[in-house]
Design a protein around this nucleic acid. Structure first.
Length: 272
DNA sequence: CTTATTCCCTGATTGC
DNA sequence: TGCAATCAGGGAATAA
């Protein structure tokens, strides 16, 4: 499940090998009829062929390829999507959903077991990213403004920080990790947090994302970077998927509960 | 406007 | 051991 650190790692991997290249041929697998949004896959392939990639940016969990024509090719990996650059044609894989041949003979391969991944070709990237909240690693993520947003919400804090319109890029892994680092119970109503708790959470989110980025992301199951290699941050998580294992801080077994339809892991003693 | 639930999808895991 | 049921989860859609 690629979240902000994983998508950013992929972006950084792809920039040196893909920016400046022209897409010479595109193929969308018939096995992925929902992959391309807003237009038929054939039209998408026809339109993207011949386009030169000018830059790659990221907004939350979206990868945004800026094309010379002004169009944006937006990609969301969702659960199991992988976007990898290869020197040769994409290897045989039952989950290969799309391939993009580049003008230097290299390839971009999109593999997605569960087929939740989506891509768009749009005039304006804001069509895809319009409702997204601030980037947690930008200046725009301000503690006072963050507190203002949380104050008006009664839902559990875990659900609120995973809401992409509140904050862009946090998913299940780093939401649990940030709440542990801030010593906040994931079930607490967002609006009930003290100024100090919000301050801790703000700092914890930034810290946790920076750490994970330094480790090139977490590879619990499906995530690999732009070269097909695993990250290492899953070896360092404090609570995520550590159900019943002792908390590193106090030894209390880590608890797992269901919250907002997602598994949530926390230490019942450290996170009151 | 908000929050909670269902759905999409398939390989891995669980339970009898 | 075998096979069906359940689980995993980002985000859109839907219900309340």
């Amino acid at each position: 499940m690629p979240e902000l650190p994983e998508v950013e790692t992929i972006r950084r991997d792809l920039v040196p090998v893909v920016v400046g290249r022209t897409i010479t041929r595109a193929w969308i697998s018939p096995s992925a009829p929902r992959l391309v949004q807003l237009m038929p896959p054939e039209e998408f392939a026809r339109q993207i062929e011949g386009q030169r990639i000018a830059d790659i940016s990221r907004r939350g969990k979206y990868l945004l390829f800026g094309l010379d024509s002004g169009l944006t090719w937006a990609v969301h990996l969702r659960m199991t999507g992988r976007l990898m650059h290869r020197e040769r044609a994409c290897p045989e894989d039952p989950h290969l959903r799309a391939t993009f041949g580049l003008d230097d003979g290299t390839w971009l391969c999109f593999v997605d077991m569960r087929k939740f991944g989506t891509m768009w070709l749009v005039d304006d990237a804001t069509l895809v990213t319009a409702k997204m909240g601030p980037e947690p690693l930008d200046e725009s993520f301000d503690p006072a403004a963050f507190r203002g947003v949380l104050k008006r919400r009664s839902a559990p804090i875990k659900a609120v920080i995973m809401d992409q319109s509140v904050l862009a890029g946090l998913g299940n892994i780093y939401a649990d990790e940030a709440l542990f680092a801030a010593r906040i119970n994931p079930r607490r109503a967002a609006g009930s947090l003290s100024r100090q708790a919000v301050q801790r959470l703000h700092a914890a989110i930034v810290e946790v994302l920076h750490e994970a980025l330094g480790d090139r992301g977490s590879s619990f199951r499906d995530y690999v970077d732009g070269r097909g290699n695993e990250g290492s941050h899953h070896l360092k998580v404090k609570v995520f998927r550590r159900t019943d294992q002792p908390c590193y801080a106090c030894g209390t077994p880590v608890r797992r509960v269901r919250l907002g339809g997602r598994s949530t892991h926390y230490c019942p003693r450290c996170q009151r």
